[in-house]
Amino acid sequence: MDPFLVLLHSVSSSLSSSELTELKFLCLGRVGKRKLERVQSGLDLFSMLLEQNDLEPGHTELLRELLASLRRHDLLRRVDDFEAGA
């Protein structure tokens, strides 16, 4: 399986429902409101961002910004580990 997708799945499974709600709010300018209403998990949101090329294995800035906004430094370390091994 693609290591970047494994990372996104790992991050998604670590998010609380309130954190997902916050991420959806933060992505309002990037993803349409109707699409965001269908998001049920972090993976749903990340999939939309992947489709729009806002997220890519070599383009993790948005993911970092979102996780920093949540103050999830543990998840930021996972992104660091991914990039160190990528």
Rank of each mutant, 00 (worst) to 15 (best):
D44K: 04
L7P: 01
L23R: 01
R78G: 05
C27Y: 04
R34C: 11
S18C: 08
K24S: 04
V11Y: 04
Q52G: 10
L36I: 11
N53F: 07
S69A: 13
V31L: 14
G29M: 07
D44Y: 02
A68C: 15
R71Y: 08
S18Q: 14
S41C: 10
S18P: 09
A86S: 12
E51P: 05
R34G: 13
E19A: 00
D81V: 08
G32M: 07
L8R: 02
L5G: 09
F25A: 14
D81C: 08
L66W: 06
L66K: 03
G32C: 10
R64G: 04
D2R: 05
P57I: 08
R77I: 07
D81Y: 06
V11C: 06
L66Y: 07
K24E: 04
V79F: 05
L49T: 00
K24P: 00
L55R: 05
Q52A: 09
L43W: 15
S16H: 05
Q52Y: 06
V11T: 04
R77A: 11
S10C: 10
E83D: 11
L66I: 06
S41Y: 05
L49G: 02
H9E: 15
R30V: 08
S13Y: 15
S17V: 10
L63R: 02
L8S: 02
E56D: 13
L43M: 15
K33D: 09
E51N: 09
A86N: 13
G32K: 08
F82D: 03
L36V: 09
D81N: 09
R77W: 05
L50Q: 10
R34M: 13
L76T: 07
L76Y: 04
L23Y: 00
L62G: 05
N53M: 06
E19F: 01
V6W: 10
L67E: 00
L5A: 12
Q52I: 08
E61R: 10
E22K: 15
S18N: 13
K33F: 08
D80L: 07
L43H: 10
L55I: 15
E65M: 12
G32Q: 09
R34P: 12
Q40C: 13
S18Y: 09
R64T: 05
F4P: 02
S47H: 15
Q40I: 07
G58D: 14
S12M: 05
E65A: 12
L20I: 08
E61A: 13
G85F: 07
K24A: 03
V11N: 00
C27I: 07
H73C: 12
G85H: 12
F82A: 04
K35M: 05
H73R: 09
L5E: 15
S41M: 04
D80T: 07
L70E: 01
V39A: 12
H73E: 12
S47M: 15
K24M: 05
R34W: 09
E37N: 10
L43Y: 15
L50C: 13
L76I: 13
E61C: 11
E61F: 10
R34T: 12
E19L: 01
M48A: 14
L36W: 05
H73K: 08
L75Y: 01
E65S: 12
H59N: 15
L43A: 13
L55P: 05
D74G: 00
G42L: 09
S13A: 15
G85E: 13
E83K: 07
R38I: 08
R30M: 09
L7D: 02
H9W: 07
H73Y: 12
L45F: 04
L49P: 01
L23K: 00
L8Y: 01
T60P: 11
D44F: 00
S14N: 12
E22H: 12
R38W: 06
L67W: 02
L5Q: 14
S10A: 11
A68D: 08
E37T: 10
F46A: 02
D80P: 01
S69W: 05
S13E: 12
G85Q: 13
T60I: 08
K33T: 11
R78I: 09
T60W: 04
E51Q: 09
T21G: 12
R77H: 08
F82C: 03
P3I: 05
L66C: 07
L36Y: 04
V39K: 01
Q52C: 09
P57Q: 10
E22D: 12
L15C: 03
K35V: 04
L20N: 01
S12H: 04
E51W: 06
L66N: 02
V6L: 14
L5R: 10
L63C: 04
R72H: 00
S16T: 13
L43K: 07
L55N: 06
L26S: 07
L75I: 05
D44P: 01
R77K: 11
Q52L: 10
V39T: 04
V39E: 01
M48H: 10
K33R: 12
H73M: 08
E56C: 12
V6A: 15
V39S: 04
T21C: 08
D44G: 07
T21E: 14
A86I: 13
L50T: 15
S17N: 12
L67G: 02
L45M: 06
L76N: 05
C27F: 04
H9L: 06
F46D: 03
L8P: 00
L76A: 07
E56S: 15
G32E: 12
L23Q: 01
E19Y: 02
L8W: 00
L63T: 02
G58T: 13
G29F: 05
D74Y: 03
M1G: 09
E83T: 09
L5N: 14
V6Q: 15
R72E: 03
K35L: 03
V39Q: 01
L5P: 02
C27P: 01
G32I: 05
V31Q: 02
K35W: 02
G42W: 02
L28W: 09
K33Y: 11
D44Q: 10
E22L: 08
L43V: 13
E51H: 08
L36K: 01
L76E: 05
F25I: 12
S14H: 07
N53K: 14
L8K: 01
H9N: 15
G32R: 07
L5I: 13
G85K: 12
D54G: 07
R78C: 08
F82Q: 04
V31M: 09
H73W: 10
E65Q: 11
S10H: 10
R30F: 08
A84S: 13
L43S: 10
L43T: 10
G32Y: 05
E61M: 10
R72Q: 01
S10Q: 12
D54I: 13
L50R: 13
L5W: 09
R71L: 06
L55Y: 06
M48I: 15
A84F: 11
L75C: 01
T60E: 00
V11H: 00
D44R: 04
S47I: 12
D81P: 00
V39H: 01
F4V: 01
L75P: 01
L63M: 06
D2V: 06
R38N: 09
L75M: 04
S41H: 07
R38P: 07
D2A: 05
E37F: 07
Q52R: 09
D80F: 05
D81G: 06
S13I: 15
L26Q: 12
T60Y: 07
S17I: 13
S10F: 09
D2W: 02
L63A: 01
V31D: 03
T21D: 10
P57M: 08
S69P: 10
F25Q: 15
L67F: 06
D80E: 09
V6E: 14
G85I: 09
D44I: 04
K35F: 01
L23N: 00
P3D: 14
L50N: 15
L62Y: 11
